[in-house]
């Protein structure tokens, strides 16, 4: 088996695993900010692994360039929207879970 095929397979499997981890995180984690972190981190990493895995299969052609551009645009836009989302949520009064717990603890101490 060729070395590129092995690299592609590795990248795809790793990327898929990361994606599923993110999906489970988005579904299971308790509040918005924890979910956002699950989604934000895995989205970029999963896209990076899968797309670069595919790039090994195209050789040097138009497809490689297109994949590269998809990857670059995803790597720019995905963290940006995650950042903007978190900022908007924080601005609109959504409190992270840790902060909620801290205020609750303080109340109990009193």
């Amino acid at each position: 088996m060729e070395i590129t095929a092995i690299i592609t397979a590795l990248c795809l499997v790793l990327g898929s695993l990361l994606g599923i981890t993110g999906g489970i995180g988005v579904y299971r984690l308790p509040d918005f900010f924890t979910r956002l972190h699950a989604c934000g981190i895995t989205d970029s990493a999963c896209a990076f692994l899968i797309l670069s895995g595919l790039m090994f299969q195209t050789g040097t052609s138009l497809e490689t360039v297109k994949l590269l551009f998809i990857l670059i645009f995803l790597l720019i836009t995905s963290p940006t929207s995650t950042h903007a989302l978190a900022k908007a949520a924080l601005n609109s009064g959504e409190t992270p879970l840790m902060e909620q717990q801290q205020t609750q603890q303080k109340r109990e101490e009193r």
Binding site: L12, L85, A89, E94
Partner: peptide, 23 residues
């Protein structure tokens, strides 16, 4: 439950659509 959760889900769905179409 919050509107931001849904927005995040749609965003994530978009990224995954890109990957699905490519693969």
């Amino acid at each position: 439950p919050s509107a931001f959760d849904r927005l995040m889900a749609v965003n994530m769905f978009g990224t995954k659509t890109v990957l699905l179409i490519s693969v």
